[in-house]
Nucleic acid binder design. Structure first.
Lengths: 213, 213
DNA sequence: CGAGTACTGTACCATCGGTACAGATTTTTC
DNA sequence: GAAAAATCTGTACCGATGGTACAGTACTCG
C-alpha cells in the first residue's frame, strides 16, 4: 500500500515533466516507464489507460497549486492586516518564488490541456475549468475586500481583475519560455502588482483622477 | 506553380488548426492529408518531414500576425494623432476583433510550440523568439513615444509594459479556452487598456499620485 | 514539344498505445 | 506465521502512425 503510492507518485512526476516539455500526445508511456524503471504492466496497474493518467495529473496539480497559493497569500496576510497591502505583499512573494525557479517555471498543466483540447474528454476539461474558477474566486474575494476600503480609480469589473492574475501568470509562463528569459514571469507579476497599486491607491477625493472614455 | 502554392496553403491551414487543437505530436500526417484530399507522397513533396511543416507554419503565422497588428494599430493612429489615445483605440480595436471570433481565438502557435519545446529544434525556437521580440519592439516604440508626452504614474520598465501586451493576449487565450468564455480574451485586453490609461493619464503635477513601496 | 512542377501508387519498417492474461513477489492484516 | 491483498513482471499480440524509398503519371508553362 505504501510502496504503491510511492511508485504512483513517481510515475505522475515523470509524466508531468514529460507532458509539459513535449505535450500529451507526444509523451509515450514507453519513455515514462523506462525513466520510472517499471514495466508496462506495472504502469497499467496504476492507470488503466493514458486518460486516467491525465485525470490523476490534473487532480494532483490543482491540489498542489491550492496548497502553494494558500501558503503564499496567508503568509502575506499575516505580515500585513490591510487587505491591499497584504495582496501586494502576496504578489511580491509570488514573484520571488518564481524567481527562485532557476530553470524557469516548468509550465502549467491547465495551459497544456487547453492547447490540446481534442485529446481530452469532458471530464478533464471540467476539472481544469473548475480549477481556474477557483483561482478566480480566491482573488475575487480579496479584491472585494480591498475595494470596500479603497474604491478603484477606474470603472473595472473585479471579476476581470481577479482573472487578470491568472492571465498574467499563464501569459508570463509562455513569455518566459518564448523569450528564454526565465525571470520574465516574475517581472510580469510585478507589473500586475503595479496595476493593482495604481488601481486602488487612494487619490485626493476632491481631485479624483480624471479618466475619459 | 500556382496550384502548388494553393495545396501547400491548404495543407498549412489544415495542419495549423489540427495542431492548435491537439498539439504537434498528436497531429498525424495521415489526418492532415485525408482532410486535404491528397496522398502521403503529395504531402512529402511539399514538406520533406514534419519538422519542415512546423517551420513553414510558424513562418506563415508570424507573417500574418504582423500584417494584422500593422493594420490595427496603423488605423488607430489614423483615427487619433496622440500616441496614447491612438494606442488606447488600437487596444479597443484589438479587443473588438477578438470578440468577433465566434468560436473564440483558435490559439497562438507560439504558445503551442513553447508548451512542446522538446519536439522542436533550435531553428524553430529562434523563430518564435524573434517573433515575440518583434512584438516587444512594436509596443515598446509606441510606449516610448507615449511616455515622452505623458510621464508614467509609476516607476515601471517600459519593456515590461510592452511585454505585458503579449502576456495578456497569451494568457487571455488560455483563460478563454479554460473557462469556456470566448469573450474573456477581449475583456482581459480591455483591462490591459485600463492599466495603460491609469499608467499614463495625467495627474495634477502639484498633487502627484503618492505610491509607496 | 520539352522541362519542370505537382503530384499518385506501392511497398516497407520500427515504434507506440493499448489489450489480454498468467504468474511472481512483496506487503499488510488477522 | 499464514492467508489475503496489493504490487508488480513477462510475454505475446494488434492496428495505427511517422517516415523512407522510388517508380511512374499528369499537368502547366514557355
Amino acid at each position: 500500500m505504501r510502496k504503491g503510492i510511492e511508485t504512483r507518485e513517481r510515475l505522475l512526476a515523470i509524466a508531468e515533466a514529460a507532458i509539459l516539455a513535449k505535450g500529451f500526445g507526444a509523451t509515450s508511456i514507453e519513455e515514462v516507464i523506462s525513466e520510472a524503471e517499471i514495466t508496462k504492466s506495472g504502469f497499467f496497474y496504476h492507470f488503466k489507460d493514458k486518460t486516467e493518467l491525465a485525470r490523476a495529473l490534473i487532480h494532483r496539480y490543482l491540489e498542489q497549486d491550492e496548497v502553494v497559493l494558500d501558503g503564499l497569500f496567508n503568509r502575506a496576510r499575516e505580515l500585513n492586516d490591510d487587505p491591499l497591502h497584504a495582496f501586494l505583499i502576496g504578489l511580491k512573494l509570488f514573484a520571488e518564488m518564481m524567481t527562485d525557479l532557476p530553470e524557469g517555471h516548468p509550465g502549467c498543466l491547465v495551459a497544456t490541456i487547453c492547447y490540446q483540447e481534442r485529446l481530452f474528454d469532458r471530464d478533464i476539461h471540467d476539472m481544469t475549468r473548475s480549477g481556474v474558477l477557483a483561482w478566480r474566486q480566491r482573488f475575487l474575494d480579496v479584491l472585494r475586500e480591498i475595494s470596500e476600503i479603497y474604491p478603484p480609480n477606474d470603472d473595472v469589473d473585479l471579476v476581470e481583475v481577479a482573472d487578470l492574475v491568472s492571465t498574467v501568470v499563464e501569459g508570463g509562463i509562455i513569455m518566459s519560455k518564448a523569450t528564454r528569459e526565465p525571470e520574465k514571469l516574475a517581472t510580469q507579476i510585478l507589473l500586475l502588482r503595479s496595476y493593482i497599486k495604481l488601481l486602488f491607491s487612494p487619490v485626493q477625493s476632491d481631485r479624483p483622477l480624471k479618466l475619459g472614455h
